[in-house]
């Protein structure tokens, strides 16, 4: 059993500056402050009678600050004795958080960083990591620790749901300037988690392909004209930005798509006929779709299809590389 007692502790004896066990949530504490104002402290904070002579706060930072600001001089606290090992307190702190309200990514990142105080070979390490829903693989643990030290702006965005967990973990790898710039994009776009990840992947890959710094790429005016547009709403801006990113990331594929569209326009097909290439032009299975509503419609469409097949123009649309140099 852990050495602990419920005892009054003078607030001036608290080690206020020691935030080792703090787990900031980076979101509003209004609900808690409202409850404190109405009911006072319902659950005693946890403190550690640390060998240094002060009481280190383990749990209850907001409650204790509220008490101090309310003029209290002492408060009943759960006091862990000096012989309580620090690692044990880390485990208890994490377990306490796990039993509370759902954790946001910023809190999870802090808890993973706290877990770093426990040796990975201790059985509590994998148990608590698993309870946090995090794989024990070294690079995954490191990614969460990196997020913990990524700075308040990114942590606030992750805590508030402004960016998803995967995007936050990725941005924690980026240089702070680029991460800040993209956070600005996501505030404008308000796009889904999967699109956030796609956007980050695209930016990283384009920067690597073009051998440019991410920040330099992000300052490109092309993006700014979309993000700052007053004509488009956030969904339209997301669509336009994704299209532009895809064009930059896959230039040859898009050049071929453009060429196909030009060639198709040159065929002057009736509206009832639609020529559809294989997806991404992979394979040799093309489709000609014919829409009709009457027999005579069908006959006209079939005749147009026959005309297309016999025109000699189709081959150039299907195999433009054999006609290199043609427009």
């Amino acid at each position: 059993m852990t050495d602990r007692t419920l005892s009054p502790v003078r607030l001036e004896d608290m080690a206020w500056e020691d935030t080792t066990f703090a787990v900031p949530c980076y979101s509003s504490r209004d609900l808690l402050l409202e409850s404190l104002g109405r009911n006072g402290i319902l659950h005693p904070p946890w403190v550690w009678d640390e060998p240094g002579g002060k009481y280190v706060i383990v749990d209850g930072f907001t409650r204790l600050r509220w008490a101090r600001e309310s003029g209290a001089e002492s408060l009943p606290c759960t006091v862990f004795g000096r012989r309580t090992p620090r690692e044990r307190l880390v485990c208890l702190r994490i377990e306490e958080k796990l039993l509370g309200s759902p954790l946001n990514p910023a809190e999870k990142a802090r808890l993973v960083a706290l877990l770093g105080e426990i040796s990975p070979v201790e059985k509590d390490f994998p148990r608590l990591l698993s309870a946090l829903g995090i794989s024990g693989r070294r690079e995954i643990v490191e990614a969460w620790r990196r997020l913990d030290s990524a700075g308040a702006e990114l942590l606030e965005a992750a805590a508030s749901g402004g960016i998803c967990e995967r995007a936050a973990l990725e941005l924690a790898r980026w240089d702070p300037g680029s991460a800040r710039e993209v956070l600005g994009w996501f505030r404008v776009l308000r796009c889904s988690a999967s699109i956030q990840v796609e956007v980050l992947d695209r930016i990283g890959e384009i920067a690597a392909r073009e051998k440019r710094e991410k920040l330099d790429l992000l300052k490109d005016p092309a993006w700014g004209s979309i993000l700052g547009s007053s004509h488009w709403n956030h969904r339209e801006k997301t669509r336009e930005l994704r299209n532009l990113l895809a064009r930059r990331r896959f230039p040859r594929l898009h050049a071929r798509m453009d060429r196909f569209r030009r060639d198709l326009a040159g065929l002057s097909l009736p509206e009832s006929l639609q020529l559809v290439p294989p997806r991404d032009f992979e394979g040799d299975r093309w489709e000609l779709r014919l829409g009709f509503s009457t027999e005579s419609d069908l006959a006209r469409g079939a005749k147009a299809a026959q005309g297309l097949a016999e025109s000699g123009k189709l081959d150039e649309v299907l195999h433009p590389d054999r006609f290199a140099g043609s427009p």
Binding site: E139, E205, A208, R209, R249, F250, P251, R252, L253, R256, R279, D280, F281, E282, G283, D321
Partner: peptide
């Protein structure tokens, strides 16, 4: 990405092939 963060092999123009594998866009392969 995890084992070779400096690798450039994933930077090509890949599309999903008919067998589900990612392949260079066909014009590049040709």
């Amino acid at each position: 990405l995890a084992r070779h963060p400096r690798s450039g092999v994933l930077l090509g123009e890949f599309v999903r092939g008919l067998d589900g594998k990612m392949r260079y866009f066909r014009d590049i392969r040709v």
